[in-house]
Amino acid sequence: MECVVQGIIETKHVEALEILLQGLCGVHRESLRIHELCLKSAPNLGLVSSELRLICDLEQPEPTWTVRHIGGSIRGAGAEQLSVLVRNVAESKVSKNALRLFYALGYKLDHELLRVGFAFHFQRGAQITVTVSSVNKMLKLHATDEAVPVTPGIQLVEVTAPASSENYTEVVAAVSSFCEYLAPLLHLSKPGVSTGVVPTAAAAAASLMSDGGSTTL
């Protein structure tokens, strides 16, 4: 399982966000360059259609591949009250020829993306990862060198933390309280619930840039 929230920020405020994150997390950012292939089962394969994500980390000296399955999210009145999405995920590292395998098994490429940006990994009530990235599409198949932004001037921010059925309420609380610190710059919500950019972003960014993030939050 994982807890996840997403939001967007204008690229001009990303530097301020980075300063804020650096101050909050106390760790250095890591560069992010991820090639993500979304695969869907052929129409007649499987009792229900299924979707897999094949993720290649291009930041590593030798690119590493992971296959990821995103399952259903927890349901019920309690889940709707949460400000964070809690969903099932399963991941496995795979050798670099995995795409050939999934094609052979009857999966088709639905779309592919290149995420470029940075990430922070830190412990704050939960093992939290924040990624800030521009999402790019490829003009030619797998041509990651010729990718162009899907939403120029806007970047995607994602906050995730691994959880289990036993501890997800604590993880949700940890993620929610962390998100509050970012509120002046961006609003984070469950994936699919778009809330746009926040009006206070410019002022908050200007303040962060002027004092280098030394303000105690």
Binding site: H69, A90, S92
Partner: peptide
């Protein structure tokens, strides 16, 4: 965990958690 399709001369090395992914995707 190793996945092999002999007819296509294909061997893929994965973590044992790939079995959970296969089970959840309900295609095989």
């Amino acid at each position: 965990y190793f996945l092999v399709i002999r007819g296509q001369r294909l061997v893929v090395e994965a973590e044992s958690s790939i079995q959970i992914i296969m089970e959840k995707s309900q295609s095989y």
